[in-house]
Every structure is written in C-alpha cells, then in structure tokens.
Design a protein around this nucleic acid. Structure first.
Lengths: 195, 195
DNA sequence: TTATAATATGACCACATGGTCATATGAGGA
DNA sequence: TCCTCATATGACCATGTGGTCATATTATAA
C-alpha cells in the first residue's frame, strides 16, 4: 500500500508515476523491472519514490489495482453464471478489447505470467484458484467430466489467455482464432458430451 | 562455439566449467544468469572465461550440447514412428528419468521455457517446429483431426513437458499423473475417434 | 640459454541495481 | 517573525553486471 504522502500528491503527479510504472512493467517482467527507470520516467527523485512506496512490490500492487479499475470500465460486466468455457472465451474477447485501448495492460499480463519470482507466483496462484473453483462448479453442474484434473486444465489455458496475444503480434483475428481453437480442443476433451 | 584454447584444457578443468554453468543456468534463467557467478564457481579468472567463450550465449550453447549428449545416454532411443501422443508421454517419462539422475538438467529446461530473451525464443521456436511437424504427420496418418491448429496444441503441451516437473516439486507420481491427464484431455480433443 | 608465441590473470572500467540519509524546502500555526 | 514539522531531494553507498587489457606466466622452438 502506498503511503499517505503519495495519495496527497496532485492527480497530475500521481498519473505520471502510474504511467511510468505501466511503461516499465509492460516492458520488463516484474523481477527485471527497475525502480530507477520508473523514477526517471516519472521525473521524480529517487528519494521521493521511497517516500511514496515501500518498494517494487508496493508500486506494482498499486498499479495493478488502478489497472483493474480501468479495465472494469472497458470490458462487459462479468456474468457469474457463464460456463467455464464461455468465461474463457469472454476473457479472450476482453483481452482484445483492452488491447485496443490499452495495449500496455496486455503486455503487463503477458510478462507477469512468465515471471517466476515468489511474489508473482503467489499472485498467479490466487488467480488460478478462482478458475479452478469455476471448473469444480461446472463439474457439479454436469458440464465437465468429474474425473478431470482442474489444475491441469487451468494451466493449459492460462498461458493462452495472458500470453498468446503478445505472441500473435497483436493480430486480433489470429489471437481469437487460436483462443477458440484451444478452448474447442479442451472442451472436446473435458466436456460431458450430450448425444 | 568455444575457442580452441578451451578445448585444449584438461578434462578436469573443462568439467569444472561445465558444472559451474549447469549450476548457474539451473538456478537462474538465461537472461538473469551471471557470468561472474559461473566464473566464481568454476574457480577460473574472469579473463580466462573470455579467452574460452565469446559470451553467455556461447557457453550456454556449449552446455546444452554437452547435456544433450549426456541425456541421450540416459533415455531410451527415440522411436520416430511413435504417435504424437506416445511421444509426449515418452518425453514426460524421459524427463522423470533425467530428473532422477540429473535434476539440474530439468531445472534448466524449466527455466528456459519461461525466458523471453530473443536468443532463447529462437531456440524454443526450433523445438516447437519439430513437434508441429509431428502433429502434421499424424494428421496425414489419420490419427489427428485435420482441422486442428497444431501450434495451439504444442503451446498447450509445451509448458507441461518442460515446466510442470518443477511446479510439482519433483514429485514423480504427481508429475506423471498431470502429464497423462493433460495428454488425455488433448487426445480426447484432437484425436480422430474410431468407434 | 634465449627468443617467441600462447595462455593465464585479476585489477580495472563503465554502467546498472536497490536503498539510505543528511540536508533543503516549504507550509501552517503561534 | 519564528518555530515546527511534513515533504522533497539527489549525492552517496554497497553490490552487482558484462567486458577489457596490460602484465605475468608458461610452453615451445631455435
């Protein structure tokens, strides 16, 4: 959590610091991102940074919170009753939409998912838990085979949701095609087939 | 390619340098690995390192070549006629076997697959190409649905083969279960079903 | 023995990193 | 006006990085 001195700053200054963080974390993964660079790009002295934030983790968490506020205004409201498959496809479409308006946000996600610092791994685990619960729910609903290993499914899909957009060179059609292809394969593999 | 001065070194010294490289690259991913650390662990002066190798890429390639020689003595001979699915499961079993004898080798693989330096991405692309060809071949054999996107399949499986062993905490049964579960799902999703 | 060429060596360089801290600045109240 | 206290600031520190290079050592040949 940023310190109170940070929140007392002018909106303009806060924005500049946020922008600098986004710029850095969308270029280098968390463990490689540099406070010095953020400070330089934000145009604030090093000492001030530590007056505002406890360290890299602190500004990262602040940034992601701001981003998620921002994203919730871009994407459609989440439908909690949607099936796992629908949710994932929706996620892909959301990623596209976000990518059009704030491509840096997508880059941050892509870099996050391939970091392996303890800090980031912990964050990812939390995100995985949510999806796993969704799969478990769909098993009870009779949509997914009960014998399926949820963790395995999530890991297979995880990389795609967050990382594939980058690899597809921000080509929307290609990305969506791949996402749908992936979901199709997994769906075929794990769904309960009604004949 | 290491310089001739390196190859003229005593086997003992070469081994020490190789070991130091393995130690470093199994601890930190390529872009984070440190020549200084390698030099320290190998017990050679910095200047000598640059007399032997052009840089980090150079020693990395040398190391991987030595490793692949080593691995080929551990694992069973590759059956080129095996189906894609069989090959992947075999790969998982190979990983286990290698992990028993040389766990560092597995760690190197796991760290490699999540690096994003240009150098490593290029190496990974080559490995992917091989697998894609295998899938294409199995399509022609009538084993895999022709409409399937091979790249998507490979990416889903890639993370597992190289990375999952680490995440499973070197627990063999867990790892193999997960691998088989993943392959099963994908198989269900992409195989041509004979009724 | 002496001259020459190959190799070994670590001090050194420029440049990064995260983090600290004494000092400077400015705002508010007495 | 003067004092106090929150904030701003950048020089500075220890530590790391990749890479170089003048010098020392050793092996080889004459």
């Amino acid at each position: 959590m940023p310190k109170s001195t940070f929140y007392n700053l002018s909106d303009d200054k806060k924005q500049k610091i946020f922008d600098a963080a986004v710029n850095e974390f969308s270029t280098r993964r968390f463990s490689e991102a540099s406070i010095n660079q953020i400070v330089k790009n934000a145009g604030i002295p090093k000492g001030s940074f530590y007056q505002y934030f406890a360290g890299k983790e602190d500004i990262y968490l602040y940034m992601t919170e701001e981003i998620s506020k921002d994203i919730h205004e871009i994407i459609e409201v989440f439908n909690p009753d949607a099936s796992f498959f629908e949710t994932i496809i929706q996620r892909a479409k959301d990623t596209l939409k976000v990518g059009q308006i704030r491509p840096e946000y997508c880059k941050i996600g892509a870099l996050t998912v391939i970091d392996n610092s303890d800090f980031i791994l912990q964050l990812l685990r939390a995100s995985m838990e949510k999806h796993i619960k969704m799969i478990e729910r769909d098993k009870q609903r009779g949509l997914i085979k009960p014998g399926i290993n949820s963790e395995v499914v999530i890991k297979m899909i995880h990389i795609f949701v967050f990382n594939e957009y980058l690899y597809s060179g921000f080509d929307e059609t290609r990305y969506l095609e791949k996402m749908e292809s992936a979901v199709q394969i997994i769906k075929e593999g794990i769904a309960v087939h009604q004949n």
